[in-house]
């Protein structure tokens, strides 16, 4: 119940401020545009590195969103108020995680069609698998991202620390998501993707659990 309240609070805050999602969508769009200029490749050439480019874009996009995710709390010390409320710290983590997951999905809802339009991303062969992939990968990114930004943004060099800490931690996620997307885009059989999906699921579950358990240590004053 408290979790639901916390999620609602995050979402309401975002609907009022519209900071995260708008900056994520605009940034994502400009990166896609830059990609098509920078590489200027034929669709066949593109299909080779498109999966990697796509997930890199979403990693950058999520860093941008995460940098905003704790900014509202920084102002007027709202974070102290949140921490002093009778809610356990793990739930605050889950609330932020769930909300950011929604924001990231929402941002992708706008940018993913651009990948299809500009860069010929074709997922029609395995649409359902692709949806599952996006849901899990985004969850994994959010699970690590909320932890890291929870630490990073209360330090002096937050904007630098968040990507520096996040990218190496997320390297198994990037590798797995890219591999699966590659198979999906190429339209071949999905038999080889089970292993990657398993890594993604394990990552998401393990890091959510660790985040739930250790967020208390991060959010103390």
């Amino acid at each position: 119940m408290t979790l639901l309240h916390l999620i609602k609070k995050e979402i309401r805050q975002e609907i009022r401020a519209k900071e995260s999602i708008i900056s994520m969508v605009v940034f994502g769009t400009s990166v896609i545009l830059l990609f098509s200029f920078a590489f200027n490749a034929t669709p066949a050439e593109f299909s080779r590195f498109l999966p990697g480019l796509m997930w890199m874009t979403f990693l950058f996009v999520s860093v941008l969103g995460l940098l905003r995710s704790f900014s509202a709390e920084k102002e007027m010390d709202a974070y102290a108020a949140l921490l002093s409320s009778p809610v356990d710290r793990g739930s605050i983590y889950l609330g932020k995680l769930f909300a950011f997951w929604i924001f990231l999905l929402f941002a992708q809802l706008f940018t993913m069609p651009l990948f299809a339009l500009f860069l010929n991303l074709n997922i029609s062969a395995h649409f359902f698998t692709f949806m599952v992939l996006v849901l899990v990968t985004d969850w994994a990114i959010a699970a690590v991202g909320i932890m890291i930004s929870g630490m990073g943004l209360r330090t002096r060099m937050g904007e630098v620390l968040v990507p520096v800490l996040m990218f190496p931690l997320l390297s198994p996620v990037l590798i797995s998501a890219t591999k699966v997307t590659h198979t999906i885009v190429s339209g071949s059989t999905l038999a080889g993707t089970n292993f990657w999906m398993m890594i993604l699921f394990t990552f998401a579950v393990v890091f959510t659990a660790t985040g739930y358990l250790t967020f208390g240590a991060i959010s103390e004053e």
Binding site: M151, R154, R156, M157, V160, L161, V164, L165, P168
Partner: peptide, 11 residues
């Protein structure tokens, strides 16, 4: 390297 950075800049 990130670990040492957070030690250094973590406040």
């Amino acid at each position: 390297v990130g670990y040492f950075m957070i030690r250094e800049f973590g406040g």
